[in-house]
Design a protein around this nucleic acid. Structure first.
Length: 248
DNA sequence: ACTATCCCCTGACGGC
DNA sequence: TGCCGTCAGGGGATAG
């Protein structure tokens, strides 16, 4: 392992062996045999790409990992440079801290989710995007989950009863599972490590569907702004009023 | 405790 | 063609 960044990076990564690659929320975690962990967040435009070592390094590639003789290189590319690479070191810890990060939808059960939004006055969408409440959900998957659950993004989180919270949780997990199975959502930049686009954009029902007819009621999908984020919804299926649970 | 706003950075797109 | 404003899968800092 090798390359560009700072001293602790080179020191810890040079010659390191990756024991396991994990995910927590939006973080990719490379556990090394040394006990240290490389933590990565791709943010908006970060990409890991496997590349033949001979290929020229394009101008947006910032880190190159040599994986060993005869292996392709793992290259970190990031047009907007919002992504972060850090090291969680065994002793002192350092740049790669995941402190405060909530469990993700595969680490938390429906009851735990309900407890986290119970008696909260915050609107549902900003709450779901808050990585200290639940991790792993971004703008696309929140919009998609809320539409499938028939919930308006501004619904006060505390207004959901236990059954409604469980229902939303089930749909959140279903959306994420399907998106993972489809290998991600490519609206524009996302690429998998082999450079290929994801497949979940084919299943989007509101995100990036402004003006298209809602698949449930044919009402045109609207785009608004909630908590400073672009927000897509069906004005008929997702009423601001009292939420209701629809059994599938 | 929570909201809104700006900022980080680059590229794409629309209007003039 | 060029210039300007706006917007983008995220999230941290700061002011109110």
């Amino acid at each position: 392992v090798l390359l560009t960044p700072e001293k602790p990076f080179r020191r810890i990564l040079t010659g390191a062996i990756i024991r396991e690659i994990r995910r927590k929320g939006k973080f990719i975690l490379f556990d090394l045999t040394s006990g240290d962990t490389l933590t990565v967040h791709l943010r908006m435009t970060g990409q890991f790409l496997l590349s033949d070592p001979g290929r020229p390094i394009d101008k947006h590639t910032h880190v190159v990992f040599d994986l060993g003789p005869g292996e392709r290189q793992l290259r970190y590319r990031d047009v907007r440079k919002f992504g972060r690479l850090g090291i969680q070191s065994r002793e002192g810890d350092a740049t790669g801290s995941l402190e405060g990060l909530a469990p993700d939808p595969f680490e938390l059960d429906a009851e735990g989710f309900y407890r986290r939004l119970r008696q909260k006055n915050r609107a549902l969408k900003p709450l779901l995007l808050d990585q200290r409440v639940v991790s792993g959900l971004g703008n696309i998957y929140v919009d998609e989950s809320l539409h499938r659950a028939g919930l308006h993004p501004l619904t006060p989180a505390g207004a959901l009863d236990r059954e409604q919270a469980r229902y939303l949780w089930r749909l959140i997990r279903a959306v994420l599972r399907q998106a993972i199975r489809a290998k991600g959502t490519t609206v524009s930049d996302y690429r998998g490590p082999e450079g290929i686009v994801g497949g979940f954009q084919r299943f989007l029902r509101v995100y990036d569907c402004t003006g298209d007819p809602c698949r449930v009621c044919r009402t045109p999908i609207e785009k608004t702004r909630v908590g400073g984020r672009g927000t897509h919804l069906c004005p008929v299926c997702q009423k601001r009023e009292k939420p209701r649970t629809i059994r599938p």
